[in-house]
């Protein structure tokens, strides 16, 4: 590990993470892509969430799929993936599970599809599964499930029935009461949460008067959404803290200070996504910053910081 400091180690849903950092689904392909960059190491991160995977292969959306916006970006990839069977048979065998934890991201158009993808991953070396009920970029499933607590609960329940591996439910910020949704997902058997997915947004090319994104709308990420994500983590933590359900806080985290805010708000894991696009070597820097903070505040472990927010 870059910082060589076990103060950063956490336990997340029974898994040992060597640091709280989690690389987010959709930003890092199927786990190996960033290792192209010299100096990048899986030993700096606790876990990698693989690209959203559906039962059958999907081509995804037409270009343009991304555009820069003030302090962030919009994406609409549309769950391009080679299908569950290909991921399990061809991609997972190439991953080195001694380097970090790998988490599958389950996606689908129906409750049955989510359950079938979960069942297939259950019989694989994957360490955990993230239920993506909040993808804003597909016509069916995704956020349509995530914004409805009843549907969210049904998806979680169906996945729970087919696996004992840790289930992490990725919640959408595009809903009225995220805490109520979290409560229902806990009742249905989720082991953890990822908070938050992207917010829905749009950008327009004023010369042609058309959306820049091929899908017309997409998911907004980056520093622009950080304050929203932080509040959502705080709200979900109020539900989770009595159930010992951990949260991966995510949304615009680009520095150790951002990460520390999320830890204080109640996140155990720290999701890194868009920040990698800005700096592919950002993880060891964030680790070092958290470590320095712990030292400066006489804390022996990052766990001592989680959920320590004192409200005014």
């Amino acid at each position: 590990m870059g910082t060589n400091n076990n103060k950063l180690a956490i336990n997340f849903c029974g898994m040992d993470f060597q640091t709280p950092l989690v690389l987010l689904s959709g930003c890092v392909g199927f786990g190996e892509e960033y290792t192209r960059v010299q100096g990048f190491s899986h030993s700096d991160i606790g876990a990698v969430c693989l690209k959203g995977t559906t039962l059958e292969a999907r081509l995804g959306n037409a270009p343009h799929r991304i555009c820069e916006t003030p302090s962030g970006m919009i994406n609409a990839i549309g769950l391009q993936n080679p299908g569950t069977k290909h991921v399990i048979e061809t991609i997972l065998p190439e991953l080195d599970f001694s380097e970090t934890r790998f988490i599958a991201n389950l996606s689908g158009s129906t409750v049955e599809e989510y359950a079938e993808v979960a069942r297939l991953f259950d019989d694989s070396p994957i360490d955990a599964m993230e239920i993506n009920i909040s993808c804003p970029n597909v016509k069916e499933g995704g956020v349509a499930f995530g914004n409805d607590p009843d549907m969210s609960a049904r998806v979680v329940e169906a996945c729970r029935k087919v696996t004992q591996k840790p289930l992490i439910t990725k919640l959408s910020p595009n809903q009225t009461d995220i805490a109520e949704n979290a409560r229902r997902c806990i009742e249905s058997g989720t082991d953890g949460f990822a908070v938050i997915n992207t917010l829905m947004g749009m950008a327009i090319d004023i010369e042609v008067r058309k959306p820049i994104i091929g899908n017309n709308q997409g998911g907004l990420s980056g520093p622009a959404i950080k304050p929203i994500a932080l509040l959502k983590v705080h709200q979900v933590y109020q539900v989770c803290k009595n159930h010992n359900i951990p949260i991966i806080g995510q949304g615009g985290i680009t520095s150790a200070n951002d990460a520390i805010e999320f830890l204080i708000a109640g996140a155990s894991g720290i999701g890194i996504g868009t920040a990698l696009f800005y700096d592919p070597l950002i993880c060891p820097k964030i680790n070092q910053g958290i470590s320095d903070y712990l030292d400066a505040h006489n804390l022996n472990s990052v766990s001592e910081l989680i959920g320590t927010l004192e409200l005014n």
Binding site: G26, C27, E33, K51, G60, P63, H64, I66, N75, F277
Partner: peptide, 26 residues
């Protein structure tokens, strides 16, 4: 060329549709 975010193959943001033996691919 295409709009690009990560530039290392991680985000699939910069795709182009190509013809392959197995049909279209991104």
């Amino acid at each position: 060329e295409e709009h690009m975010a990560c530039a290392v193959g991680g985000c699939a943001g910069c795709v182009v549709e190509v013809k392959t033996e197995n049909g279209p691919a991104m």
